[in-house]
């Protein structure tokens, strides 16, 4: 790491993550990054599904089989949640970018809302998909 070279000069170190008491905003900031990275990898699942659909019935049967296993369903549910959590976290970022919602009460409230909202919306979105004819 770069610190090793500069520490010889005995510069004062700024406090890093482990020093602070964890707060809701801090944990959810990490969640935003983790979900972003998970969605990055998750595009591979979307690609597999799209390519299989484009390739033909046999290839499609393969993804379909996987997605209907318990593991497949769990991954799909987690993928949906990560997408929605990241979306709500992103909207929170956009609100913060306007300078709003940064007060000590609002920022905690807003952050909590993304978590409650993402779990609720994930269930609602699956239900809507079911009503539209999915999962049968």
């Amino acid at each position: 790491m770069a610190e090793a070279k500069t520490s010889a000069k005995n510069r004062p170190l700024s406090p890093h993550l482990q020093i602070y008491r964890p707060t809701m905003t801090m944990m959810m900031s990490i969640v935003h990054r983790v979900t972003g990275a998970a969605l990055y990898v998750g595009t591979l699942l979307l690609l597999w599904w799209l390519i299989a659909a484009a390739a033909g019935p046999n290839a499609y049967a393969g993804v379909q089989w996987f997605l209907e296993t318990v593991i497949g369903r769990l991954i799909l549910f987690g993928y949906t949640w990560a997408m929605i959590q990241h979306m709500l976290g992103g909207i929170r970022h956009l609100i913060w970018d306007t300078g709003r919602g940064l007060g000590p009460v609002e920022r905690e409230w807003l952050t909590m809302a993304t978590l409650v909202g993402s779990v609720g919306l994930t269930v609602i979105v699956w239900f809507i998909a079911y009503l539209m004819g999915g999962f049968r």
Partner: peptide, 29 residues
């Protein structure tokens, strides 16, 4: 930020679309 704003409606649409296709046969998809 630009892509984030664009992605909000696009993501909602894409997620509902893809999930609603789960379980349908290849021809329908």
């Amino acid at each position: 930020r630009l892509t984030s704003v664009a992605l909000v409606p696009l993501t909602i649409g894409a997620v509902i679309l893809v999930l609603s296709l789960m379980g349908r046969n290849h021809a329908a998809v």
